[in-house]
Computed example of a mutant assay.
Amino acid sequence: MTTKEGRFECFSETDRLLIRPLNKNDYQNWLNEYENRLPSQHRHDEGKLDMSICTMEWFHNLVDKHQELGVSDSAHIFGVFRKNDGTHIGMIDFSTLARDDFHWGRIGYTIHNQYWRLGYGREAVNAALSIAFQQLNFHRIEAHINLDNTPSVKLAESVGMEFECVRKGFIYENDEWTDHLVYYKNAN
């Protein structure tokens, strides 16, 4: 959904969370939570990251790029914020795979590891799926998950996504074509 000014403005909220596009005022909060990440907890957790290139100017350009992607319907990228204190706890994105007769997208989700095991992932992904189906008009959303990423599988299943198949040699990562589990959910 875009405003008259051409800005991408979809959002959702739960009892504890607000899911919305990043804005330029989020910089310090966003940076603090990336810098406060714990060391990697498993192979698919990036853990602490080098944030030295992430200046305020870099972040403002990132917010502008997210807006452009949303307006063009290429990707829709959301920050996940705790409502009681505004803390940035993660990101969720939807990539448009096809429109026309499909209205098909892919979801990606990351909750900062210092906020794991508090139910935020399930709550945020449920709210984001509402955005996908009700505001972005997707019919089908898929999650493409590494075969050994058990936490991501559990999260997908907890929000009602169903296992469809293993796609062989599906995504090029770490210098090789890797197999992925495909989980999906269709709009009701």
Results as ranks from 00 to 15, higher is better:
Val182Trp: 02
Lys65Gln: 12
Ile19Gln: 09
Ser52Arg: 14
Asn188Lys: 14
Val63Thr: 12
Glu164Lys: 00
Arg37Gly: 08
Val166Asn: 11
Asn36Leu: 11
Asn146Glu: 15
Glu35Val: 01
Gln114Ile: 10
Glu157Gln: 12
His144Lys: 11
Arg99Leu: 13
His180Gln: 12
Gly47Met: 12
Gly108His: 07
Ala143Trp: 04
Val182Thr: 08
Gly47Leu: 13
Ile171Thr: 07
Asp26Glu: 06
Gly105Pro: 10
Val63Glu: 09
Tyr115Leu: 15
Asp73Gly: 13
Ile19His: 07
Glu157Pro: 01
His60Met: 12
Ile77Asp: 05
Asp179Val: 02
Ser74Phe: 04
Phe59Lys: 05
Ser130Arg: 09
Arg122Glu: 08
Tyr184Ile: 15
Ile89Asn: 05
Lys4Leu: 15
Asn36Glu: 10
Ala128Arg: 01
His180Gly: 09
Phe11Glu: 13
Asn23Asp: 15
Phe78Asp: 03
Gln134His: 03
Lys185Met: 10
Leu17Val: 12
Gly108Arg: 04
Ile131Glu: 09
Ile89Met: 04
Ser95Thr: 12
Gly169Cys: 03
Glu164Cys: 04
Ile53His: 13
Phe59Pro: 05
Asp73Pro: 06
Asp100Thr: 15
Lys48Ser: 13
Tyr120Asn: 09
Thr96Gly: 04
Leu17Trp: 11
Arg82Leu: 15
His42Gly: 13
Glu176Leu: 10
Lys24Leu: 03
Asp15His: 13
Tyr120Val: 07
Val159Phe: 12
Arg140Glu: 07
Glu57Lys: 03
Met1Phe: 08
Asn25Leu: 08
Asp175Thr: 07
Lys83Asp: 11
Thr2Ile: 13
Tyr183Phe: 06
Asp93Val: 05
Val153Trp: 12
Phe94Leu: 02
Ile111Lys: 03
Cys165Val: 13
Gln67Tyr: 10
Asn61Leu: 09
Asp148Tyr: 03
Met1Tyr: 07
Ile77Tyr: 10
Ile145Trp: 08
Trp104Leu: 14
Leu38Pro: 05
Ser74Trp: 01
Met91Arg: 06
Ile19Gly: 06
Tyr109Cys: 07
Glu46Met: 08
Gly90Lys: 05
Glu13Ser: 04
Ser12Leu: 02
His88Gly: 00
Thr150Ile: 15
Gly6Arg: 07
Asn126Tyr: 04
Phe94Trp: 04
Tyr120Gly: 05
Gly119Thr: 01
Leu38Met: 06
Arg122Met: 07
His42Asn: 14
Met56Arg: 07
Lys48Asp: 11
Asn174His: 08
Thr96Cys: 02
Asn61Pro: 01
Lys83Trp: 05
Trp30Lys: 00
Ser130Ile: 10
Asp15Glu: 14
Arg43Phe: 04
Asn23Leu: 03
Ala128Thr: 00
Glu164Pro: 01
Leu97Pro: 02
